[in-house]
């Protein structure tokens, strides 16, 4: 089976959709040379009209994409760094997201916002290291955070084909993951995936943290049977899939690379406890409240959720219910 990196999976998804549908085009900064190493070769293959470099006018080109979508195209915007989403939050939320309802169903705005390299990239400091996916879930924009190459491919393809705006966070921590991939196919939005079955506790892990959760589950295998649930899409969330898992294990720990207050972990826990009576209080491992990632590598690591924290949370959850 061919080995495929997460990054190349994104490239393949973009290339396949550009080839499949004339309405698809790419927009972003430095994408013709492929500075983020995702759009590499696409300008040469599909032309600079469909792989368009933009000036550093994030608000204008985000709304430009909204207009192009209103006129029937399917733009994909690459944002090199996650913090740019703060700059265009208004354009995505107030315009792209609201137009279908505000026009009484007269239009669709099928734009994909792709962030290759979201979250911490060691040494990139405070303004390049955010992971603001919870914000988009809060406002009701479809939000996906793939963990594996196959899901990166399949969810990006589905995002581009979706008739509403979709934000695709490709965590920096997952970009170099490689996997044996046989069939690449669309992955439905809004459906989670159980990576590892277990009996004692369900760990929900978001994005690159799925790999950390799997490692911790292996480490603890002789003490506790851990199930690892990857939501893949944060909004709409596969609450049915997760409920089924937690109903079996009775315990819930969430591993989430977002700030703690109003982070997606809080929403996941609330949604589960509305439906399931747990054997122990749920726990979450997140960034601290209001985290700003400091520059020094040791400090950067200190505010990211860690495997040690997850192992501790799992142990405490087991202890609380014994």
């Amino acid at each position: 089976m061919p080995r495929l990196s997460y990054r190349r999976a994104l490239t393949r998804a973009l290339a396949d959709e550009l080839a499949r549908d004339e309405a698809v085009f790419l927009l972003g900064e430095d994408i013709q040379v492929g500075a983020s190493l995702v759009t590499t070769g696409l300008a040469k293959r599909f032309g600079v009209d469909r792989v368009r470099d933009t000036p550093l006018s994030e608000q204008a080109f985000t709304s430009f994409a909204t207009g192009a979508a209103l006129a029937g195209l399917r733009p994909v915007i690459e944002f090199q760094i996650p913090s740019l989403l703060f700059l265009v939050f208004e354009q995505i939320v107030n315009h792209a997201h609201k137009f279908p309802l505000m026009t009484g169903g007269q239009c669709a705005v099928p734009v994909t916002y792709l962030v290759p390299g979201s979250g911490s990239r060691t040494g990139w400091a405070g303004q390049h290291s955010d992971h603001p996916y919870s914000l988009f879930a809060h406002v009701g924009v479809v939000t996906v955070v793939p963990a594996t190459p196959a899901d990166a491919y399949g969810l990006l393809v589905s995002a581009i084909r979706h008739d509403d705006p979709v934000v695709v966070f490709a965590p920096a921590g997952a970009m170099d993951v490689r996997d044996d991939v046989s069939d690449l196919e669309p992955v439905p939005l809004g459906r989670g995936r159980i990576h590892r079955f277990g009996d004692d506790v369900t760990v929900v892990a978001v994005g690159h943290l799925v790999h950390d959760a799997l490692a911790v589950a292996e480490e603890l295998a002789d003490q506790v049977s851990v199930e690892v649930f990857d939501p893949r899409t944060l909004y709409p969330f596969d609450i049915d899939g997760l409920t089924e898992s937690v109903a079996r294990t009775g315990r819930l720990v969430v591993l989430d690379d977002a700030n703690r207050s109003c982070g997606i972990a809080a929403e996941i826990i609330a949604s589960v406890v509305e439906r399931v009576r747990l054997l122990a209080p749920p726990r979450r491992v997140t960034r601290p409240d209001g985290a700003v990632l400091p520059f020094a590598p040791a400090l950067d690591r200190a505010v990211q959720p860690s495997r040690e924290q997850l192992a501790t949370a799992i142990h405490l959850t087991m202890k609380d219910s014994s």
Binding site: Q59, A60, F61, T62, S63, F64, A65, T66, G67, A68, A69, L70, A71, G72, L73, P75, Q91, N94, H95
Partner: peptide
């Protein structure tokens, strides 16, 4: 807001 939206729509 309308300037960039219209620019995109016309271009498309």
């Amino acid at each position: 807001a309308s300037g960039a939206i219209i620019t995109g729509a016309v271009w498309a």
